[in-house]
């Protein structure tokens, strides 16, 4: 075990996979000489050379299209998109190509690319360095969508992603890249997809979140415990595939649910969770499912702290839900 920040854990995951498998390579803007703008790829160029650490021209469609070609050939490319906000030039490659290769070829052409991208707000990044648009990718059949919230999960889920057989969107909560530290297993220790993580056990309200919202929700849950409200906090970790069993089991126990994410509310992932609970846990529910999310506005700059769910908003929602009905 080693104490690492989340971004260091990403780095160790890449390093581990590249040491173990010569087919793994990374490509993206500033990933080589500069080690990535967040230093996620630091040291990789020196250890693995230019053939496996490609500083690319500034073109997201070029990065992803190239990665797709490499994957079709049999390599395991890990592409970095510098900020999730800049992924849209590659949207066609991701949605029309990457997600559909296996299906459209009748299984002849699996296409395993991992796309790593820092996402989310809280860094004073304004409109174009802050957005949380995971729902676009969850809505596209053929993509797995993974969001770690701890250093151990960052490394363990990344290793699973790299050795998976399908395309994976690996979204990294940049706001907690360095603010969260934790013990990370050494070696090739993988964390499976499709299993939520129980962050905190509770009996009154289930709170579902992921990524940079986990520390916020945990702090709120701790504060509410002093008021006598027992919150169960669940980190979804992989949105696709989703651990529906863990979600349903928790709500069957508590009868109350709050969903927290940074993304805008309308058609956000929380809507899917609310629908899931309505379809499959309706008779367990004692109160309406509540969403605490970003607003349906573009991501703001000066008012960022009022846009993002914070401890006060989460606490308020959990308290209200606990008392409803």
């Amino acid at each position: 075990m080693t104490e690492l920040t989340l971004v260091q854990a990403v780095n160790r995951g890449l390093q581990q996979a590249m040491r173990d498998d010569g087919d793994v390579l990374v490509l993206g803007e500033d990933v080589g000489l500069n080690g990535g703008v967040f230093r996620a790829t630091e040291g990789l160029l020196k250890e693995f050379g230019e053939e496996r650490v490609l500083d690319t021209p500034l073109s997201e469609t070029g990065i992803i299209g190239t990665a797709i070609g490499m994957a079709l050939y049999g390599l395991k490319p890990v592409a970095e998109i510098q900020f999730l906000d800049f992924i849209y030039p590659a949207f066609d490659q991701i949605v029309s190509e990457l997600a559909k290769f296996r299906y459209r070829s009748g299984g002849q052409y699996p296409c395993h690319v991992v796309i790593r991208s820092p996402y989310g707000g809280g860094i004073k990044g304004g409109l174009y360095h802050s957005q949380s648009t995971e729902a676009y990718f969850c809505h596209t059949a053929g993509l797995k969508v993974v969001i770690p919230s701890t250093p151990a999960d960052a490394k363990g889920l990344l290793l699973t992603a790299i050795h998976d057989e399908d395309p994976v969107m690996f979204l990294e909560p940049k706001r907690i890249y360095r603010s969260v530290t934790g013990e990370v297993p050494d070696g090739d220790e993988r964390v499976p997809f499709g299993r939520a993580r129980l962050v905190r056990e509770g009996t009154d309200v289930s709170v579902f979140a992921y990524g940079a919202m986990i520390p916020v929700v945990t702090e709120a849950a701790n504060a509410l415990a002093a008021e006598g409200i027992s919150s169960e906090v669940i980190d979804l970790r992989t949105l696709v595939p989703l651990d529906e069993a863990a979600i349903l089991a928790s709500v069957e126990k508590t009868g109350r649910a709050v969903v927290v994410h940074e993304a805008a509310r309308f058609c956000g992932f929380g809507g899917e969770l609310a629908a899931l609970l309505a379809e499959k846990a309706f008779f367990s529910l004692k109160a309406p499912v509540t969403r605490v999310t970003g607003y349906d506005t573009p991501f703001p700059y000066a008012l960022e702290n009022l846009y993002l769910p914070n401890v006060e908003r989460v606490s308020h929602a959990v308290r209200t839900t606990a008392r409803a009905g």
């Binding site: 469609t61 070029g62 992803i64 299209g65 190239t66 990665a67 797709i68 070609g69 490499m70 994957a71 079709l72 050939y73 049999g74 390599l75 490319p77 066609d92 490659q93 029309s96 190509e97 559909k100 459209r104």
Partner: peptide, 18 residues
């Protein structure tokens, strides 16, 4: 596929892989 030109970058990636 139907989108225009998407195979062009992919061909480059496969060439680099080869």
């Amino acid at each position: 596929s139907s989108p225009i030109g998407t195979q062009i970058t992919q061909a480059v990636g496969a060439a680099l892989a080869a």
